[in-house]
Amino acid sequence: MSESVSRSSNRVKSSWKEFWEWTKALLIAIALAVIIRTFLFAPFLVDGQSMVPNLADNERLIVNKLIYFIREPERGEILVFHATAEKDYIKRVIGLPGETVEMVDDKLYINGEEQHESYLQGVKEEYRENGLNYTADFGPVKVPEGHVFVMGDNRPNSEDSREIGPVPFEAIVGRAELVFWPLSEVHMLHWGGEGT
Rank of each mutant, 00 (worst) to 15 (best):
G98M: 12
D153F: 13
H116E: 14
N133F: 14
S161P: 03
T100N: 05
P97T: 14
G98L: 11
V150P: 00
S158V: 06
G139R: 08
K107T: 12
N130Q: 11
Q121R: 14
A171K: 07
N154F: 14
E170Y: 12
G139L: 08
E159Q: 11
T135L: 02
I172F: 02
G112C: 09
L96D: 00
V141A: 05
P166D: 13
M103A: 02
Y134H: 08
T135C: 03
R128F: 11
P156Q: 13
G95D: 05
S158I: 04
G146Y: 08
N133M: 14
G98E: 05
F169W: 13
Q121A: 15
K142Q: 13
E99P: 02
V167D: 00
P156R: 10
P140C: 12
P168H: 04
I164L: 14
G112F: 10
V148S: 04
E145M: 14
P156I: 15
Y119D: 01
L108K: 02
E159F: 09
V148Q: 02
Q115A: 12
G152S: 11
I90G: 02
A171R: 06
V148C: 06
R162M: 04
P166F: 12
T100S: 12
Y134D: 02
V143A: 03
H147R: 07
N157Y: 13
V148Y: 03
F149R: 08
P97R: 12
E163P: 00
R92D: 09
K142S: 12
G112P: 03
Q115S: 08
G98S: 07
S161D: 07
G112S: 10
V104H: 02
Y119G: 01
P156W: 13
E145Q: 14
Y109W: 09
D106C: 04
G146C: 13
I90C: 11
R92Q: 10
M151T: 07
S161Q: 09
E145N: 10
P144C: 15
D137S: 05
L108R: 03
D105E: 11
K107M: 12
D160S: 07
G131D: 02
Q115F: 08
E126C: 09
E170W: 11
P97M: 13
A136E: 09
H116W: 08
V148E: 01
K91W: 04
K142C: 06
A171W: 06
P166Y: 11
I94K: 02
P140D: 11
E117T: 00
V143N: 01
V150G: 05
D153A: 15
N130T: 07
G98D: 07
D137A: 09
G131N: 06
K124N: 06
E99M: 11
P168V: 05
E117S: 01
E159H: 08
L96E: 02
E113H: 10
